[in-house]
Write a protein that binds this DNA or RNA. Structure first.
Lengths: 216, 216
DNA sequence: CGGGTTATTGAGGGGCGTCAACAACCGTGG
DNA sequence: CCACGGTTGTTGACGCCCCTCAATAACCCG
C-alpha cells in the first residue's frame, strides 16, 4: 500500500489545504471496520496496522502502513470502512474529507490516473502476499514478515536496527502464525546470527540471508 | 471479481460498440503475465482461472472468473499484465481496446464511480480470501473452494449439479492444498452425503452443511 | 485398444499447532 | 525504591494434521 509515495503536486496541495492534522497514540484506532466512511487519511509519520476481523475472531493483519500511505479508501457499497486501522507507533495523519477528495478526483485526470495506478499496486501486493501465505513454510514466512516490517519502518539498511511496538502475536497475525512459532523461529534466526533481538528491539544483521530464505 | 455485474448503460454501450468478440477453447490463455496490456476483456460466457506465477514455480489460482467479469485491468506501471488468465471452459469475451476504455472513463463520472466501486469489491474479496487462507484448516478450505466454484459456475442452487473442467490440482491451487488432500477431502464429503462426485462431475447436495463448515 | 495423464487410497513421517510451565517485562501503588 | 500482579515472551513436550511418496485404478485421447 504505497498510495502516495509518488504523487502529483495537485494532490499534495489538497492534502496541505485540508489542515486536519491528527495525532494518534500507540494502540489507538484510526478507522473501525463497519463504521461510516467520512474521509481519507494520509500518514505523515508513524506506523499503523491495517487489520480485518475474521470469521473465527482470530485477528489478522493485512499489512503495515507508514509515511505516505493512504488509508480509508477501502469502502463497501454502503460507504462503510471494510478494514480497521490502528496505530502501532505514535502516528500523525492528515485527514481529508470525502467530498473534497471526490472533487479533486473528478476535476483532475492526472490525480485519477495516479490513484488508479496505486490501487493496482495495492492489488498486486495483496495478490503476492496471498500466494506466499498459501505456499510458504514457517521459516520462510518469518523471513517474509521481517522484511515487511523492516520496509514499513523504513529501516536504514546499513544499521538494520529498529524497535517495533508489535507483539509476537501481532507479528504472527501478519503472516498466519501463532506466537510460539514466532518466538521459536526468531530464536533460531538469532543463533544463526541473521538477526539480533531482545524483546521489541529487533536488528537485522544479514539481509541477504533473509532474502535468500524467501527465494529473492 | 464481479466488475461488471451491475454496470451502467454507458459502459454496456461501449462494450457493444467494440465488436471484437473472441472465442477461447478450454485451456487456452487469454492473458499472459508480463505481456504488454493492450486492453480489457469482458466475459460473455464461460469460466476462466486468474492465476499468478509464484516464487517457487508452484501455480496459484487467485480466483475463477465468469459471465460479467472484467479482466485485464491489473497492470503494472510499465503497462504490463500482472496476472495470467486461462479459459477453464469454452469462453466468449468482448475485447475493448485500452484507449477506448480510457476515453469512456475520462468522459463519464458514473462509469468511473462504478469502476472504483468494483475495484473496491475486488480488494475486499481478496482480503477475505487472504485471511481465510491463513486461518482455515483443510476441510474448511475445501468447503470454501467448493462454494467459490459453485459461485463461479453460477450454479442453480436447486439442483446443485455442475461439471467443472478443473483438475484436482487446480482445485488445490485455488486454496493452497495438494491434489491428494483434495481427493481425500472430497471422498470424506461424499461419505457424509454433503456432495456427490465422480471425476469432474460435482454435485453439492447440502449447501447448508458446507456453509456451516466455514462458519457462515 | 494402448499409453499417458489424472484420480484414489494408504502408509509413513515431519512440521507445526496446542498446552503448560517458567521467565521476563512493565506499569501501578505502596 | 521495591514489591507485586498482570501481561507478554520463551522453551519444551506431545500429538495431530497434513505433506510426501508410492502403488493402483480410472480416465482420456489418439
Amino acid at each position: 500500500c504505497t498510495i502516495l509515495k509518488k504523487c502529483r503536486r495537485e494532490f499534495l496541495e489538497l492534502i496541505n489545504r485540508s489542515k486536519y492534522c491528527i495525532k494518534y497514540q500507540r494502540g489507538q484506532p484510526l478507522i473501525l471496520e463497519g463504521k461510516e466512511a467520512d474521509g481519507i487519511y494520509v500518514i505523515n509519520s508513524g506506523v499503523v496496522k491495517v487489520h480485518i476481523s475474521s470469521y473465527k475472531n482470530k485477528p489478522f493483519i493485512l499489512f503495515l502502513g507508514t509515511v505516505g500511505d493512504m488509508l480509508g479508501y477501502q469502502i463497501d457499497p454502503n460507504n462503510r470502512y471494510q478494514v480497521s486501522v490502528t496505530a502501532v507507533e505514535e502516528t500523525h495523519v492528515c485527514f481529508i474529507e470525502r467530498k473534497d477528495f471526490e472533487n479533486v478526483l473528478n476535476k483532475n485526470v492526472a490525480v485519477r490516473d495516479d490513484l488508479r495506478q496505486t490501487l493496482n499496486n495495492e492489488l498486486s501486493n495483496i495478490y503476492l502476499r496471498t500466494v506466499r501465505l498459501a505456499q510458504m513454510n514457517v521459516s520462510e514466512k518469518i523471513a517474509e514478515v521481517l522484511l515487511h516490517i523492516a520496509d514499513a519502518y523504513q529501516l536504514n539498511y546499513s544499521t538494520g536496527r529498529f524497535t517495533v511496538n508489535l507483539s509476537r502475536q501481532d507479528i504472527g497475525d501478519i503472516i498466519g502464525l501463532n506466537k510460539e512459532q514466532v518466538s521459536k523461529c526468531l530464536s533460531d534466526l538469532k543463533t544463526q546470527k541473521i538477526i539480533a533481538a531482545s524483546g521489541k528491539d529487533l536488528q537485522i544483521l544479514n539481509y541477504k540471508k533473509l532474502e535468500e530464505l524467501i527465494g529473492k
